[in-house]
Design a binder for these strands. Sequence first.
DNA 1: TCATTTCAACTGGTACTACCACTTTGACTA
DNA 2: TAGTCAAAGTGGTAGTACCAGTTGAAATGA
Lengths: 259, 259
Amino acid sequence: MVVPVEMSRKRPVSLSSSLARRLEQLILDGTLKSGKPIPSERQLAERLGVSRNILREALKELRGRGVIDTQHGRGSIVKGLVPNLEQGNALTYLFREHPRTLYDLLEVRELLEGRAAYLAADRGTEEDFHRITHAFEAMEQAGQESTDPVRSAQLDHAFHQTISEASHNPVLVHTLQSLMELMLNSVLASVNNLYHRETSKKQIDRHHRQIYNAVIGRQPDWAQKAATAHIRNVRERLLEIEQEEQRLDRSSDWEKLLR
Amino acid sequence: MVVPVEMSRKRPVSLSSSLARRLEQLILDGTLKSGKPIPSERQLAERLGVSRNILREALKELRGRGVIDTQHGRGSIVKGLVPNLEQGNALTYLFREHPRTLYDLLEVRELLEGRAAYLAADRGTEEDFHRITHAFEAMEQAGQESTDPVRSAQLDHAFHQTISEASHNPVLVHTLQSLMELMLNSVLASVNNLYHRETSKKQIDRHHRQIYNAVIGRQPDWAQKAATAHIRNVRERLLEIEQEEQRLDRSSDWEKLLR
DNA sequence: TCATTTCAACTGGTACTACCACTTTGACTA
DNA sequence: TAGTCAAAGTGGTAGTACCAGTTGAAATGA
């Protein structure tokens, strides 16, 4: 009921403003995910222990700043923060023209995933670990039952994303997300090839298990090492695949795939 | 073939938002003069024929846009209109109100700059080194002559950018660029503070020289170590500055109490 | 059976009232 | 004269009631 408001600002912070702040923090932490709807005003107001009036003022503030989008009768959705990181245009062009950029991307991703795993092991909460476990088990189970490469890629992505979110670094999360979207949008087909090869699949599964155990076991250094090794492995595999394909079809499978 | 123009206006404008517009118009017309107080909420609400709730939401919008300034128990005054046009991006606010995000960003930047320096030392061409040298010398020279913090920041940025470009990883370059734009647009003032402090400046110059020498000398590991240390140092300095500013805020509160 | 209509239960938008917290002012007191 | 303090003004919150779009599932029609 009574919500303590701590502050050290010049002027006393109004409840509605600090509310807006709290909501933003929730978005940054990933509790409220970009693109997803947020609870209704009545629910939120009750859950946060404030009147709907004041909750509305807070939402108004977020809305004015473009953080959320609201429609009468439907609800509000998170529009996402850090829009400047939508690097779509410039880089999608690059991918079309120079497929090798994929390895450059994986080079960056290797760094970021490693750091994310480190931080996740270091400052992830029990709830984070719960989500990670859930994603991991879903991935393992699907790996035994189904052979659908698309689903595998999705679960893979989900697993890595839960880990990055456990890092509690929103900039890291959003950057990785941007890179992943870029990758999935442009070269999904090639990535899927990985899951068709038994040797690759086994290796990937082993890496995933290493990452998972290290994070859950709160072993930051191991987690980082496992994650970087994982991405590096993916990168090398893709390189092999590409060379193979080039041998088979000199004239570019790539461009067809990327178009 | 004539297409009604206003068909795209699917969403009705909420009363509170249009109210905010009307109030802004009143300010533009001079009815509400800059610096002067505006009528109380109760008066305004009655005069405009709306509920006080909705009037408050409108004021909240103006307040969020920096058009008016409100104090509990006193009232609201017009701060002036059109303060900053490009303020639109939520990031400016985000970084101002959530300083932690800045450290999150620098945490990511530390990784990327380190890797960029490593790669630059490893696979940079002579031409790259030429550009880096050019940028480095310009920075050093300006450091002795001028004390313009803005120019210093620009040259600093240019130096780091030439290095990242020497990494020949476009994804890395682009990601770093995005992060830098984010930072410069939002917290330029704070960053500039760094160049005002002699001790900071000396330390920064030393780090830059270390990075430069390591890259030019083709010492990837040293380059990486120097670059990460550099960014980490910046991060810690900014933390100090922020804490200082918070102390200043509190002391100014004391003055107010004594007066 | 399938397409259509209808309606109930959501959602956000607006109004009104009562009260709390802060600031200013000025009359009253010491 | 200097200090006290209470009233009246201000913005801040809470709560209720109702209006207005949206949705989806049950009821209806062909």
